[in-house]
């Protein structure tokens, strides 16, 4: 498939995902134990998309998270971009077709991005945000459980489009 078409399709998927996450699956409405679809999508981009487009989409997704989470100053943009780079550069070394490995990658990506944010919050302790490491672990587990089947389905769709 044409690179531009792929990019635009993934951009539309990004908007769809952020919409679902800010309406039906918002932590305000659905509680804290909800999957972070945006992060799962970034891991997906890191594994399947071409580097430049994926990099831009990862930054864009992070930026949308920043804006919709109370106009934060690039916290999600940078943490998700870092996660994208880490997964992108290491994804060749792990066998992502195994559910367990994939689950672990999603779990570690979640832990990485939130530890990234948590460290910033702790450094700037006057910012007023409350986030515990327990929340992060729970989020990682939920993302892994939901992310593996989603990833598998998205991978199949992606493969069909690539033919």
């Amino acid at each position: 498939m044409n690179k531009t078409v792929t990019f635009v399709s993934l951009l539309l998927v990004s908007v769809l995902i952020i919409t679902v996450q800010s309406t039906l699956l918002s932590p305000r409405n659905a509680g804290h134990l909800i999957p972070d679809l945006n992060l799962i999508f970034i891991v997906f981009l890191a594994v399947y998309s071409e580097t430049r487009g994926g990099f831009l989409l990862a930054a864009g997704n992070g930026y949308m998270m920043d804006v919709l989470s109370g106009n934060l100053p690039g916290t999600f943009t940078i943490s998700r971009l870092s996660a994208y780079i880490l997964v992108r550069t290491s994804s060749n070394h792990v066998y992502l077709k195994k559910a367990l490995v994939l689950g672990l990658v999603i779990f570690l990506s979640t832990i990485f991005t939130w530890t990234f944010i948590l460290t910033i919050i702790r450094i700037k302790s006057d910012a007023g945000f409350q986030l515990s490491f327990g929340d992060i672990i729970l989020q990682g587990l939920v993302n892994s459980v939901v992310g593996v089947p989603l990833f598998w389905a998205a991978g199949r769709i992606h493969a069909r489009f690539q033919k």
Binding site: S22, P27, R28, L68
Partner: peptide
Amino acid sequence: VIGASPSILRSQVVI
């Protein structure tokens, strides 16, 4: 109200 924050970091935001 048509939406809310998508993150657990700052969930006290609505759209």
